[in-house]
Simulated scan of single mutants.
Amino acid sequence: MSSASSMVDWDLAGRTARRLVSPGPRTTREEAAAVVRELHEAAATAVAHVEALTGLRPAPDGAVPEIAVVDRPGWADANARGMATLLDPLVAKLAERQDSRPGALATAIGSRATGLQAGGLLAFLSSRVLGQYEIFGTGGRLLLVAPNIVATERKLGVDPSDFRLWVCLHEVTHQLQFTGVPWLHEYLEQQIGEFVAATDLAPEVLRERLQDVLRSVGDAVRGTESGSEPEGLMALVRDPRQREVLDRVTAVMSLVEGHAEYVMDGVGPDVVPSVRTLRKRFAQRRKGRGPVDRVLRRLLGLEQKMKQYAEGRVFVGGVIELAGMEGFNRVWEGPHNLPRIDELTAPERWVERVLGRPSLPA
Rank of each mutant, 00 (worst) to 15 (best):
R313W: 08
R37M: 09
G223K: 07
H185S: 11
G356S: 14
A113K: 07
A251K: 00
Q190R: 07
D159L: 12
L300C: 10
K287E: 14
L302T: 06
P361W: 15
D88V: 03
V196H: 06
A80Q: 04
R285A: 07
V36W: 09
M306F: 06
R18N: 06
T224R: 15
S161N: 15
P269F: 07
L300W: 14
Y187T: 00
N79W: 07
I192S: 09
M264E: 14
K280N: 00
P23M: 03
G139W: 06
E153V: 14
R298P: 08
Q242T: 12
G137M: 12
F124P: 04
R276H: 07
Q242N: 09
V263R: 04
M234D: 07
A220T: 07
A146L: 10
V150E: 15
P347D: 12
E194I: 05
E41R: 15
G119S: 10
T345F: 03
E30H: 15
Y187A: 03
G14V: 02
Q284E: 04
L20S: 01
S5D: 04
D293Q: 07
N148S: 10
V256W: 10
E194K: 02
R112D: 11
R289M: 13
N148M: 04
V36N: 11
G356W: 05
A95E: 14
D270V: 08
V69Q: 01
S226E: 11
R128I: 09
R57C: 01
V354T: 01
G318V: 13
E38N: 13
E231S: 11
F328H: 11
V129P: 00
L169I: 05
Q308T: 13
V275W: 03
